[in-house]
Amino acid sequence: MIRVMLVDDHALVRMGFRMLLADAQVEVVAEADSGEQACAEYPRAKPDVVILDISMPGMGGLEAVRRLLAQDPKARVLVLSAHEDTAHPRRVLRAGALGYLTKRSAPDALIAAVTAVAANKAYVDPQTAQALAMAQVRGETSPAEALSEREFSVFVQLARGLSVAQIAENLKLSPSTVGTHLYHVKQKLGTANQSELTLVALNWGLIEGNPGSQPR
């Protein structure tokens, strides 16, 4: 039986996944509602697979992937996302996640993804894989591709409406370091303020909904 940890900030979402996985003989051994809690619970739970939502309050999913892999380089992480851009899957897989699945995928795709990742095999849902392939063929790149990994994390959190102080707390950085990253982000993206950064993020599908709210 595959043992998983569910990481999502919505209890109802976790309940739905738990019921779906139970039907496939997959055991949920731990749950967490944030990346911070997931990192704290992981050593105790020792799951075969971490199923992790990329859009959560706090450090968020991308940072959680990095920290989980820093804790355990052999950690097997499957990221779930409501985003349909190509920047997030690129970043997530580059950070060390084995799988990436959009929440629009059919329920049986979740089982297939968990099974593959548990076997230490990469899994990307067909829709995302096609988007990545076509973007490469057409030479399409998001402006965010010019950003470093840390700059990207700062950019996304700022675009969601978080303050420099909140981002510093979430990413365990000093406010001055966040300010430096923010300066470089603005320079690279040709933006002057937070509103313009948010517009760039919305236009490229990097965030959803209203600034200051967590996208689903």
Score class of each variant (00 low, 15 high):
residue 164 V to G: 01
residue 188 K to C: 00
residue 118 A to D: 02
residue 124 V to G: 02
residue 81 S to N: 05
residue 170 N to H: 12
residue 97 A to N: 04
residue 150 R to N: 14
residue 13 V to K: 01
residue 171 L to Q: 04
residue 83 H to Y: 07
residue 202 L to R: 04
residue 59 M to P: 06
residue 38 A to H: 01
residue 61 G to I: 04
residue 2 I to C: 07
residue 198 T to M: 01
residue 105 S to M: 13
residue 57 P to C: 00
residue 44 R to D: 12
residue 16 G to M: 04
residue 58 G to R: 08
residue 92 V to L: 04
residue 10 H to Y: 12
residue 18 R to K: 15
residue 28 V to N: 01
residue 169 E to Y: 10
residue 48 D to M: 05
residue 63 E to S: 13
residue 49 V to K: 07
residue 162 L to T: 06
residue 62 L to Q: 10
residue 101 L to G: 08
residue 119 A to E: 13
residue 137 V to F: 12
residue 103 K to V: 11
residue 175 P to T: 12
residue 62 L to I: 14
residue 198 T to Q: 00
residue 77 V to P: 01
residue 134 M to P: 02
residue 93 L to D: 06
residue 80 L to R: 08
residue 7 V to C: 00
residue 37 Q to Y: 07
residue 49 V to I: 09
residue 119 A to N: 11
residue 149 E to G: 10
residue 181 H to I: 07
residue 34 S to V: 11
residue 98 L to I: 11
residue 130 Q to H: 13
residue 191 T to K: 03
residue 168 A to V: 10
residue 60 G to E: 05
residue 177 T to W: 11
residue 43 P to H: 08
residue 82 A to S: 15
residue 127 Q to F: 14
residue 45 A to Q: 10
residue 168 A to T: 08
residue 44 R to S: 15
residue 185 V to E: 06
residue 115 T to D: 12
residue 76 R to P: 06
residue 113 A to S: 02
residue 10 H to Q: 14
residue 97 A to G: 03
residue 70 A to T: 10
residue 137 V to Q: 14
residue 195 S to Q: 15
residue 11 A to V: 14
residue 28 V to T: 05
residue 32 A to T: 01
residue 149 E to S: 14
residue 137 V to S: 11
residue 132 L to A: 08
residue 70 A to W: 09
residue 143 P to M: 06
residue 72 D to F: 05
residue 51 I to L: 12
residue 150 R to F: 10
residue 159 A to H: 01
residue 94 R to P: 05
residue 72 D to T: 03
residue 59 M to I: 11
residue 101 L to P: 09
residue 127 Q to R: 13
residue 190 G to D: 02
residue 67 R to L: 13
residue 199 L to V: 12
residue 109 A to L: 13
residue 28 V to D: 02
residue 24 A to G: 03
residue 168 A to C: 07
residue 82 A to D: 11
residue 98 L to K: 09
residue 122 A to E: 14
residue 199 L to P: 02
residue 18 R to E: 15
residue 127 Q to I: 15
residue 142 S to Q: 02
residue 129 A to E: 15
residue 13 V to H: 02
residue 140 E to R: 12
residue 16 G to K: 04
residue 46 K to E: 15
residue 38 A to L: 04
residue 180 T to V: 14
residue 135 A to R: 09
residue 4 V to P: 04
residue 57 P to N: 01
residue 179 G to S: 08
residue 60 G to W: 06
residue 49 V to N: 06
residue 195 S to E: 15
residue 65 V to C: 09
residue 82 A to E: 12
residue 142 S to H: 01
residue 135 A to G: 15
residue 44 R to L: 14
residue 147 L to H: 01
residue 144 A to H: 06
residue 98 L to Y: 13
residue 196 E to G: 00
residue 41 E to W: 09
residue 116 A to W: 01
residue 123 Y to T: 07
residue 73 P to G: 14
residue 129 A to P: 08
residue 79 V to G: 01
residue 68 L to G: 06
residue 108 D to H: 14
residue 7 V to T: 02
residue 131 A to R: 15
residue 110 L to P: 03
residue 154 V to A: 03
residue 50 V to K: 06
residue 31 E to T: 10
residue 32 A to G: 03
residue 88 H to A: 13
residue 100 Y to I: 08
residue 68 L to C: 05
residue 209 G to P: 04
residue 216 R to V: 15
residue 156 V to G: 00
residue 62 L to K: 05
residue 147 L to T: 00
residue 95 A to I: 09
residue 152 F to D: 00
residue 107 P to A: 03
residue 176 S to C: 09
residue 59 M to F: 09
residue 202 L to S: 03
residue 119 A to P: 03
residue 126 P to I: 09
residue 13 V to I: 14
residue 167 I to Q: 02
residue 119 A to C: 05
residue 140 E to H: 12
